[in-house]
Amino acid sequence: MNKSASITTGGTFRFGLLLLAMPLLLWLFLLVILPHVDLFLVSMRERISYGKYEFSLINYIEFFAEPLYWNTYVRTAVMSIFATALTLIIGFPVSYYIAKVMRGKGKNVLFLMCLIPFWVSELVRTFGWMILLRESGVISNFLQWAGLADGPVEMLYNDAAIMVGLVYTSMLFMVVPLVSVLDSLDDSLIEAGYDLGGNTFTVTRDIVIPHAMPGIASGCIVVFMLTLGNYLTPNLLGGKDSLWFTEQIYTQFITRFNWESGSAFGFLLLILSSVIVWVGLKLSKQTLSETVG
């Protein structure tokens, strides 16, 4: 039994490896590659009449010809980049505080506090924001009570509300990689930076940020992807002017029954996110393997 189980030939070894990798390969093929191929094929056809389709680029042409789609596409990308930057700007000091300033129990408590909002679903979190920001909501009432506002204040249904929701939703995904990368920064490097004449700004710029770069890059990639692909938050908090590209895709698929252009939009979103992540990695001089690995 032992003899036959031990790996004796290359052939057996390879077969065993294949068997081990099977779940991963199946997962990749059935759930990632196959749907994308199908999506691509659907995006490349045009509906001629009931149940009749032909190969065509019309869905892509339509995207470029219709300013609405374009605008939404660019707006989504710009807002996502902005939300990612904002998340980084807020998340970095928070992470630094958790990783380097706090000690012992307080550290875990703070970290847990970042995690708590994620115990409820995104929908509930977004509704929470709606309760706070709406005209008859908590903040509006507080401002009136405090005499800072004369009448009800509507803070919902605008880009700022979308931003707040997106940053809040993404914060954890920025803080986790940042905390782990900052944790790995030897305190004595920071002290050496000060000792040799650096101030807070230069030490952060020359030592902390270069060290944290892989964490920053991976946090930004995750947050950017999440933001770009977010549907609920822009939709609920943005109201009548939300204009998020995923909404377009949803509309095409679900309310227009236009799977062809929905697929094309989906593909364009995939291209957009890939290009922006690629550019971001180039600019920050990081590689994907470094960042993810």
Binding site: L68, L243, N258
Partner: peptide, 20 residues
């Protein structure tokens, strides 16, 4: 009738995209 919803969809898109 088929096809009408495509027209309506585009109208709705334009309304959504318009600046308020």
């Amino acid at each position: 009738p088929a096809g009408l919803e495509v027209l309506e969809g585009k109208t709705l898109d334009r309304v959504k995209a318009a600046q308020s």
